[in-house]
């Protein structure tokens, strides 16, 4: 069963190319870590696939269909730093945003939408903070709110940009439990990841990226010392972070 297929995808910022001929295929129900050095285009890859950033060329198919018809089946978790957490709103309200597509444009959310949002917060262990100002949440709590917002979308495919960056251990566990649970329900999940040490524990598939796909496939086959070195080039100095 096809989860995701990307063919010849290229993109640029201003005039410099950041993604060059990206090709890969991932099966439905896979949990994939996107790994690569800084500036490899990991975040850009997600944005270009979801047409949040213009592409130069290439095609993307979600469960065999183009983005247009799949938009409602796709959940996106942007980087936590991409929004202003000083914005006047609370955790529950942010999670409700994930339901705006279902609520309908220019209509008000109903009680059942609020219940759905509460359930998602509960799943992320954030029920007690539903009415908390988002500026008063810790970084990990903010990340959980973002995860909860993606969960209420009840999507088929999830794309998450560094959900584990700068979060506390408890949040990391909560997020990983959720990701595995999504995988268990045959959702296709792609996660931009920065910590090489946890790749093998967390992901069944891996996409090594440095402006183009260096390698992809099942973690056990692809996440090898040679491949990782090749992806990171001279930038990799920490022996202990490279799998043996």
């Amino acid at each position: 069963m096809q989860g995701l297929s990307v063919t010849g995808l290229s993109a640029a910022y201003r005039k410099s190319k950041v993604l060059d001929e990206v090709n890969f295929k991932l099966p439905k129900g896979s949990l994939t870590g996107i790994v690569g050095p800084n500036g490899a285009g990991k975040s850009t890859l997600l944005k270009v696939m979801l047409e949040l950033h213009p592409k130069l060329g290439g095609t993307v198919h979600f469960a065999g269909k183009p983005l247009k018809t799949m938009r409602k089946k796709i959940g996106y978790v942007p980087q936590r730093g991409s929004v202003d957490w000083d914005f006047p709103t609370d955790a529950l309200d942010v999670v409700m945003m994930g339901l705006y597509g279902n609520v309908g444009w220019m209509k008000s959310p109903k009680a059942r939408h609020r219940e759905q949002a509460m359930a998602a917060l509960e799943q992320m262990g954030m029920a007690d903070y539903a009415r908390r100002q988002i500026s008063q949440l810790s970084g990990g709590q903010q990340q959980r709110v973002f995860l909860a917002r993606a969960l209420v979308q009840d999507a088929e495919l999830y794309f998450m940009d560094e959900p584990l960056a700068g979060v506390d251990a408890a949040t990391e566990q909560a997020i990983m439990t959720t990701l595995r649970e999504l995988k268990g329900r045959s959702k296709t999940v792609m996660v931009v990841h920065h910590d090489l040490q946890t790749v093998e524990d967390y992901f069944d598939h891996v996409l090594l990226l440095n402006r183009t796909v260096m390698n992809y496939g099942e973690t056990a086959d692809v996440f090898t010392k040679d491949n990782v070195y090749r992806t990171y080039g001279a930038g990799l100095r920490w022996r202990q972070e490279v799998p043996s």
Binding site: E51, L52, Y76, S82, V83, F87, M97, Y100, G101, W105
Partner: peptide, 22 residues
């Protein structure tokens, strides 16, 4: 007033708004 919910989403998180099809 009519687009209150849309304005909020657009101002807080435009990338997510775009993902939802706004």
């Amino acid at each position: 007033w009519l687009g209150f919910k849309e304005w909020k989403l657009f101002l807080f998180d435009p990338a997510f708004a775009k993902g939802l099809g706004l």
